[in-house]
């Protein structure tokens, strides 16, 4: 055994940069790591990769109503042309934008308000938080039926209440009326999902360092200034994720409009998803429905890019081995 006792070893210049292992080599070294994610990937592959491929294929063909794939004919981009030139496309798109933007905006603002009001500890806070979270937990199907009943034009509680306090006279139509129906549904949607924003932002608030707020207070910042200059910037990351998730969720809403109005009256609550459903399943117009779906994929990919970027922010800074 060689001993280097008492010997001074010194290399003044680092040697040449090490040769990097090739991708294949690195994959081989970490081959057991993949076993951990294999089950998850397999499930996702079956339930996602195939449908995506299939949808893209459908969107370039004309497929008979029977969905008999053997009889489909290639039509190029005809389906896309049909989508983009139809009058209803712009109407539905505009309604989707109103639905998504207003739902997201109000859900986020109500959630932010609730999170801030609930941040300070007080007796019954956990109970209050629990009650506010119930709408998020119950199924959209249940919520739709309950609100449909609340909005009922003859026996609905809301209309009756407005009459009793004298704001309106006679029965009020909320969802059977094409000028108010979309907004009435947005209320339901906000009711259903504001507490999601609340819980995310509550979690985010807990990561705002107390010392920062104290420092701001010592520096003479008012409560509003502390909120604006300290709390809000600290919430930026959570807010981005929350808003993105809300936008995606709202853009993809189906149950509330489907059960409450079925897209009516006269298409006033038709949004992309319900429209796709109607095209495909009620009119068996598979190709056009698929073309819509592919366009939607593209929109989602863009949103998804920002979503993933927001989610994995700082991820590689964390220790790992």
């Amino acid at each position: 055994m060689s001993s280097v006792q008492g010997q001074a070893i010194f290399r003044d210049v680092p040697g040449p940069a090490p040769k990097q292992a090739s991708l294949g080599q690195r994959m081989y070294t970490s081959r057991f790591d993949y076993l951990y994610i294999a089950p998850a990937l397999l499930v996702m592959l079956i339930v996602i990769a195939y449908p995506v491929y299939y949808t893209i294929e459908l969107s370039f063909y004309k497929t008979p109503a029977s969905l008999s794939l053997a009889d489909k004919t290639f039509t190029g981009i005809d389906n896309y042309r049909t989508v983009l030139t139809s009058a209803i496309f712009w109407k539905v798109t505009w309604q989707t934008i109103i639905w998504t933007v207003l739902s997201t905006l109000f859900s986020f603002l109500l959630g932010l308000g609730a999170a801030l009001a609930l941040h300070r500890a007080f007796i019954g806070r956990a109970l209050l938080r629990g009650l506010l979270l119930i709408p998020w937990v119950v199924s959209a199907v249940a919520a739709s039926y309950v609100w449909k009943w609340l909005y009922h034009s003859d026996f609905g509680a809301i209309g009756a209440l407005l009459n009793q306090i004298g704001l309106t006279k006679g029965p009020v139509n909320f969802i059977d009326n094409s000028t108010t129906s979309l907004y009435a549904l947005i209320v339901v949607n906000v009711w259903k999902e504001f507490s999601f924003a609340m819980i995310m932002l509550m979690a985010g608030l807990q990561t705002v360092p107390e010392s920062l707020l104290r420092a701001a207070q010592v520096d003479g910042a008012s409560a509003w200034q502390r909120f604006w200059h300290v709390t809000l910037p600290q919430l930026q990351g959570v807010s981005t994720v929350t808003i993105l998730l809300l936008v995606v969720q709202n853009f993809n809403s189906f149950i509330i409009p489907f059960i409450m109005t079925g897209g009516g009256p006269v298409g006033s609550t038709q949004i992309w998803i319900t429209h796709i459903y109607e095209l495909a399943f009620l009119r068996q117009n598979w190709g056009v429905g698929a073309a819509y779906a592919v366009l939607l994929f593209l929109i989602m990919m863009v949103l998804g890019y920002f979503y993933v970027r927001a989610l994995t922010r700082g991820d590689d800074k964390r220790a790992g081995a």
Binding site: S2, S3, Q5, P18
Partner: peptide, 18 residues
């Protein structure tokens, strides 16, 4: 030796602990 990508974390270190 221990390398990370093209960086040496430990570069040709030899010693004996009795």
């Amino acid at each position: 030796m221990k390398t990370y990508g093209n960086m040496y974390a430990v570069n040709d270190v030899s010693f004996t602990v009795n």
